Simulated assay, not measured.
Amino acid sequence: MNVVHILGRIGKIDSRSFENGNMTTLSVATDESYKKDGQRIEKTEWHNIVFNGKLADVISKYFDKGDLIRLSGKLRTRSWEKDGQKHFQTEILANDFEFLPNGKKSNDKQPVVNNSSDDNNDDDDDDLPF
């Protein structure tokens, strides 16, 4: 099963339009801390996220750098060749997200929940995975 759940803060946002629809990419930072030899270690991991179609439109319209987001999707690794060298990138293809209150950052945005797998969204929050 290829399922990923991320809760973190948005870094950069980039939106693009193509003939077959829109795409928005994000970087999302997740933090973890642990103790090693009595010292507290904090680590930030950056994740590349891709939203397509209607989700891309909502993300680019309502989300900003620093916003807290919870999302789910699946891992995908792309590869390409440039100047004779093979490159790889692992990213998360997002299919669901939730806008969360930002805590430290004051913001008057309202929460947004969108499930792309349900095109006939009946606004029934009882079956949300979060």
Rank of each mutant, 00 (worst) to 15 (best):
N2F: 06
M23D: 00
V28T: 01
N48K: 13
Q89I: 15
G84I: 08
G8K: 03
N120P: 04
A29C: 01
V112Q: 13
D122E: 09
R76W: 00
F130P: 02
K74G: 10
L55C: 03
K86A: 11
D122K: 07
L26P: 00
W80T: 06
K105N: 10
W80N: 08
R9A: 05
D64M: 11
G84F: 05
S106H: 14
F18D: 04
N2M: 08
N22Y: 02
L75G: 02
I49S: 03
F130D: 00
D64I: 07
K65E: 14
Q110P: 04
R40V: 13
K104Q: 14
G73H: 02
L26V: 00
F18N: 08
N121P: 00
L55R: 01
S72Q: 06
V112K: 15
D124C: 04
E19K: 14
W46F: 11
G38E: 05
Y62G: 06
G38I: 09
K43W: 03
K43H: 13
E98N: 08
D37Y: 04
N2Q: 09
K104F: 10
E32Q: 10
Q39S: 08
G21D: 07
N48T: 14
S60C: 06
P111E: 14
S17W: 05
I13L: 14
D126P: 00
S17P: 01
A94S: 11
P129Q: 01
F97C: 07
T77Q: 09
G8Q: 04
F97G: 07
L75D: 01
T24G: 00
K65N: 13
A94Y: 03
R78W: 02
V3E: 13
R70A: 13
L100N: 03
V113Q: 12
D14I: 11
D119L: 13
L68K: 15
Y34N: 04
W80M: 08
R70H: 09
P111D: 14
P101L: 11
M1V: 11
K12C: 08
D37P: 01
W46R: 09
D126S: 15
L93D: 08
V58C: 00
I41M: 11
T44E: 09
G103N: 12
Q89K: 15
N52G: 01
D14Q: 14
Y34P: 02
D57E: 12
L100A: 06
D67C: 07
K36V: 01
N52K: 10
L7T: 11
R76P: 00
G38S: 06
K109D: 15
K105I: 15
I13S: 06
S60P: 02
T77Y: 02
I6G: 03
N2H: 08
N120R: 06
F99R: 12
D37Q: 08
D31S: 07
V58P: 01
N115A: 10
V58D: 05
V58S: 07
N107C: 14
G21C: 04
L93Y: 08
V3C: 07
